[in-house]
Design a protein around this nucleic acid. Structure first.
Lengths: 339, 339
DNA sequence: AACGCTAATCTAAACGTTTCGATCCTGTCA
DNA sequence: TGACAGGATCGAAACGTTTAGATTAGCGTT
């Protein structure tokens, strides 16, 4: 900018005024300055600007795993929304690990992000502190945090799972296994509650042997399913509370020589883009990813626009049960054999 | 830092020296300063630091679509690699659109990223200029750019597709359709070349009616497949040069009432994490995503570590044909009926 | 006792912006 | 004719660091 000012024989203040439109500058100087900008190929230094202005027009986004299609989609939507608003987004993957998450949040804060969207992991004392300091607005995505009062957009997990389990019950299933993630995550607790509620509403027992938990990865779903399938009395249906784990479930079913839905019914949380193309077509609880991403972005953009003092807003969206062909009615006895 | 200095009754220079270890500071002052840092809860302002140092320890990463599983995986690997090195990554999705890409690259450059990893789109005069200016190192990912000499990691697309098409030919297929992305992308040209080469090597004609192109989206694959399946003489196999488009292909096959592989064989570029679990299990060309992401990260990290003058390095990795059951041998007549 | 050397510390400039307040014109009005 | 208003322009400080070079203190040498 100094060079531009010199070339145009004006002060830097005038250049700044022209660029930002913060004051009127005469046509002749404008012309000279614009010419100089073109000649020099000047680009404003956003770092210097950020230092002075105290804002980076950059936000931080952390998710447990970007390869989980749910998060992939949400990240995509959020990125687009902020891109439209002229914000950059720094993406971090916490790998379901609290320490990693803390490191990454610190990294983001160091870089003075204007706001944070966090699909949290673990308990998060750090996160709690940030929200309380209230220097940078935080919106919680997908997973709330007990006792932390800040903007959030989540799914009504309990009723979504309630609907799915009830659907299985109505198909005639009685022994319905449930594979969950680690219990410190709000979504997992809520989903489990939906499972229990549905069983109880139908007068069915909740047997601990049918409930397995893992750390959200495919391998965890695989191991859990292996255990379930080797029970003396095998479940007739499995519900997986998490998307990557259901892949493990399907692999275990295949490896053990069974097939879905003939031998065992499967349903899971989170829809796949291709779920109605390949067999079995999985029955899933679809989250409104587009809406979730957009709402989260809007909540944060609203704070960034200056609306700092409004009370925390919590948006609860509804899931939708996508019924396909991975669950079979138990009334009719189907001779299940596939190639 | 000023407050810390005052509280510890030292100069800011001493505080800086201690924090960065750039000079020895006496034990007593160190203690006072550390105490003050703790008391105040001081965090170094990375923006001010960046301004002074001329480095942000942040890189920019642009991909066409993060929802394409290939890019999802690569993004994930790259993010992890830079995270380990203490870098933040700004992610942008260009949506296969040149203008969007240019806007986003400008956004990243404005923010003074130290380097750029670009899975480019379109012709990219802007990109060309950046590489020539050589201010910020650029590594091209997945797609090279004609006449632009910079680090790159790509697949040997031609031989990968050659292998896949040859496999189909060996199964007895003669009318093999090919669905490609837009031709300005290097990968697409190379893949197409592999297709032609394989046909010619087998003495088969390359018929234009069997070649369709689209803009990488599912819907493009759908439309292309619809056209192919309504040809007077239908192809017996379809190869899709891009991952999302093959979903469209499968949907079109389903909608038209055919089934794979009984009525038509399908293979495609890019593996899915779940491809060996659901039916049909797609035969794919798997890219070594882990290696691609890591190599790209390493190339850039090496430049960032100061190795600026080394000549451009181009890494060419090999794909791997994952043979599953979505392509059937044409010799044996299989009575194809599925539920 | 004067000197120089080293290690520790400090002062102040610089990075590239934004912005407040001052200055300088030009023209209008009493 | 002089005062003044208002618009255009500028000078300089500030944002929070890093760092070159100056200063100081302590100590051994001669």
């Amino acid at each position: 900018m100094l060079h531009v000012a010199e070339a145009a024989r004006v002060s830097v203040a005038t250049v700044s005024a022209l660029i930002n439109g913060t004051a009127t500058v005469s046509p002749e100087l404008s012309a000279r300055i614009e010419q100089a900008i073109r000649d020099i190929g000047y680009k404003r230094n956003a770092i210097a600007r950020s230092l002075k202005m105290g804002t980076t027009r950059t936000i931080g986004l952390t998710v447990p795993h970007i390869t989980n299609p749910f998060f992939t989609d949400v990240v995509s939507v959020i990125q687009q929304a902020f891109d439209r608003a002229g914000y950059a987004v720094m993406l971090c993957c916490t790998d379901e690990d609290l320490n990693t998450q803390d490191d990454q949040i610190r990294l983001l804060l160091d870089r003075m992000v204007d706001g944070l969207i966090v699909a949290r992991v673990g308990d998060g004392a750090l996160l709690r502190g940030i929200v309380e300091d209230a220097n940078v607005p935080v919106v919680l995505l997908d997973r709330t945090l007990e006792g932390v009062d800040t903007d959030a957009v989540v799914l009504d997990n309990q009723s979504a799972v309630f609907d799915a389990i009830t659907y299985l019950i109505n198909l005639g299933h009685r022994r319905i296994a449930y594979i969950t993630g680690t219990s410190d995550i709000s979504t997992m607790g809520d989903r489990m509650a939906g499972y229990r509620e549905a069983l109880q509403a139908a007068g069915l027992p909740v047997s601990p042997e049918l409930i397995r938990s893992g750390n959200f990865h495919e391998i965890d779903g695989y191991n859990a399913t292996m255990q379930l399938l080797s029970l003396h009395e095998r479940p007739s249906a499995i519900f997986s509370a998490n998307n990557p784990m259901v892949i493990g479930t399907m692999k275990a079913i295949r490896d053990i020589g069974l097939s879905c839905p003939e031998d065992i019914s499967v349903a899971c949380f989170d829809d796949f883009p291709w779920s109605d193309v390949f067999q079995p077509q999985l029955t899933t609880v679809a989250q409104p990813v587009q809406a979730i991403g957009e709402q989260a972005a809007n909540l944060l953009l609203d704070r960034l626009a200056g609306n700092r003092d409004a009370p925390p807003r919590k948006l609860v969206l509804k899931g939708r049960l996508m019924i396909r062909n991975s669950c079979r009615p138990l009334g009719a006895v189907v001779q299940g054999v596939t190639a």
